[in-house]
Design a protein around this nucleic acid. Structure first.
Lengths: 225, 225
DNA sequence: CCTTCAATACCCCAAAGGCGGTATTTCCGG
DNA sequence: CCGGAAATACCGCCTTTGGGGTATTGAAGG
């Protein structure tokens, strides 16, 4: 069996160490190099002997300085045969999109267990495109937009969803965006805090969120305010 | 002393009543008409005898149907001499801007006490441009942008403020925008919830906010994420 | 006339958040 | 080498949220 050579670009040193140790347990995978920055990775990869050039590069997407996406673009130019697997904390639609355009073929979350990481490496090396379920859904939605619109994909597009909030609920939602609490909202709108709560509960239901933070995010993203 | 004739456009009936009663106590002010909608106000105002045409129109900015701003534009065409004072629950920069462009000369908040409202009416009638302190600041910042940029004012402009968040703090802020809690954030970033708390406290300080909701708002508005 | 729905109000309760501290380690710039 | 900024961690305190209910009223629509 061919050993899969892996490089790891990650600024978090403890995570780097954790992975260096954990990869020891998998005989078919060898961590040939780790780098703490995009810049370091690019210069380091150039100096590697051909026998050590990695098959797979695990790339942290959130790197200080040169971002993981920028590094991916550069790395792909240097080693077009290497497969890049993005490695990130959050499922950011825009970043996923950019990472895919930059040439990344896989997408892992940092809290995926090591077994999942290893499986993803193997799958990627075997020509697959491993990614977490929700990321897969996101990618599908990109394709859907592409085929439906029949136009250029250009940007992720904000999605024209309708939430059907009542006038009053919109007013309440505005309050949330403005940082109001139950109490202050109640005073401003001349209603009881209980009512404010009820409205906000209903808003959450309609927006499919469970916190103010997400409600504010959705409101701003979708231009509800 | 000349009596100031005031019309009030406000969809909230209890607020309308409250004002109708409270204006009774001020001899120099007469509430000549109240309307529950922009449409109603426009048709109602047209039918008023010349002696009853208001000097001041208090206009709720958040009206169902025709908005307060649209109504303001139309009312200004009908009665260019009338002064419009916007009346709103929130200090929305964009709406303030539009209201000013629509011809409004004053800006009140709904939770201002009646005395403040009356003072504002008098000041407006005397040729002033009363507005709350924070609104005044916003207006000034518009002017500042206009004079500094020396270009067309066009849109409020997102303001190029620098918050000087550290890399880590940005990461945490992203978490907030994604609706993470202390706990989930701690797990994803491999740190203690206490640390998450500390970081978030520092972020709040740097963004000058005191809640997740506002932090998310600032993050999205200023493109920090 | 009856149903539905928005808006209003209230209860309980567990979880999360915000604020005030203190403290250690690491790293960077002067 | 020292000072300061970041990042890390912990403690306690009190308030706010979010989720589960229930219920009344008035307006809109069938």
């Amino acid at each position: 069996m061919n050993i899969i050579k892996v490089a790891f670009v990650e600024d978090n040193s403890s995570l780097r160490k954790r992975f260096e140790e954990q990869f020891e347990f998998f005989e078919d995978i060898k961590l040939v190099a780790t780098y703490a920055s995009g810049e370091g990775a690019l210069s380091g990869l150039r100096k590697l002997p051909p026998s050590q050039i990695p098959d797979i590069v695990l790339m942290d997407i959130e790197l200080p300085g040169m971002s993981g996406i920028e590094t991916t673009i550069a790395a792909k130019e240097l080693f077009p045969e290497a497969e890049i697997m993005m490695f990130t904390v959050f499922e950011d639609e825009v970043k996923i999109f950019h990472a895919i355009q930059a040439g990344a073929a896989g997408y892992l979350l940092k809290d995926d267990p090591i077994e999942k990481v290893v499986d993803a490496i193997r799958e990627l090396h075997a020509g697959g495109a491993p990614m977490s379920q929700s990321i897969a859904r996101t990618v599908l939605s990109f394709l859907r937009e592409k085929s439906v619109g029949n136009s250029k994909v250009s940007i992720p597009a904000p999605a024209p969803v309708e939430f059907d909030l009542s006038e009053r609920e919109l007013e309440l939602l505005q309050g949330l965006v403005h940082g109001e609490t139950y109490q202050t909202l109640a005073k401003k709108l001349f209603i009881s805090p209980h009512t404010v709560k009820t409205h906000i509960k209903n808003i959450y239901k309609k927006l499919h969120v469970h916190s103010r933070a997400l409600a504010v995010r959705v409101a701003l993203d979708r231009g509800l305010v």
